[in-house]
Design a protein around this nucleic acid. Sequence first.
DNA 1: ACTTATCCTATTACTTTAGTAGTATTTAAA
DNA 2: TTTAAATACTACTAAAGTAATAGGATAAGT
Lengths: 146, 146
Amino acid sequence: MKFNTKVRYGLRCMIELAMADPTKGMLQKEISRKQQISRKYLDQIIFALKSTGLIENSAGRGSGYKIGKQAEKSTVYDIYRSFESELAVVDGLDEDETKNHCYAAREYWIQLNEHIKDHMKSVSLNNLKERQIQFSQQTSGLDYVI
Amino acid sequence: MKFNTKVRYGLRCMIELAMADPTKGMLQKEISRKQQISRKYLDQIIFALKSTGLIENSAGRGSGYKIGKQAEKSTVYDIYRSFESELAVVDGLDEDETKNHCYAAREYWIQLNEHIKDHMKSVSLNNLKERQIQFSQQTSGLDYVI
DNA sequence: ACTTATCCTATTACTTTAGTAGTATTTAAA
DNA sequence: TTTAAATACTACTAAAGTAATAGGATAAGT
């Protein structure tokens, strides 16, 4: 019952970019250094985030990434969905009910699943950015890389 | 981001036993047949549930299992904890903050983790039993094994 | 004694995960 | 217009986790 590293690193990337100067792009190299994620692994993560439009760049050398146009309105769930299919905390929830062996258990998992999904949808990248800014001000930005 | 089969089957077992006649025990064989879980795998699951006191029996031949004395007050989280250590949707949440690379991300995961845990603690075995009874009455107990 | 059932550990096949590697393509700069 | 930096995308691999089976030890009912 864990989120994998792609989702976790992806979230950190998005916050990093949300905090960055939106007028100039940020290179993979720079994100990699700041977030301590290997260049090649980050490459995959950025590829996924770009595919869903959460981040943008122009191709080729030296362009750099910036947050996508609609990305500030995006939520943690959108970021999650860049890497995974729809959340399903157990398999077979959408199957025919009669195939299940316990109605109450099935209903419980469905409820929990929605509960988690709702939480992930309720927190936007903007919310996270604000929290990060608050923290940076409190600590003079010394303790964290961002 | 999935619950494993031990937790899922464990939940079904607990509901099965909660629905059963509390005066007589239920054999592994019987649970296995009703819930369609292999005897040997169920053996492990029952062993775990017994270790945490959620189910009880007297040893040896033909005793059968029944719900533990305090088990009706127990929650989904208690059942989960029979198989897993404390819920942690990402690793390293309890580590020193300065080792993290993004404050806002870390805070987010902590909140989500508590959110899930709270949900799991808010639903008791009794709640699930009531739901199961309601369902059985509606369908005349035909569609589900329990 | 014998059989049935539980107790508990070990093992295995399989899948997933985390990360590396490599090659092709794009484009800024020399 | 070469060249080198950077991204784009696929393939691969080692390690870890999962689902399940196997098997011997022990306990009791008959």
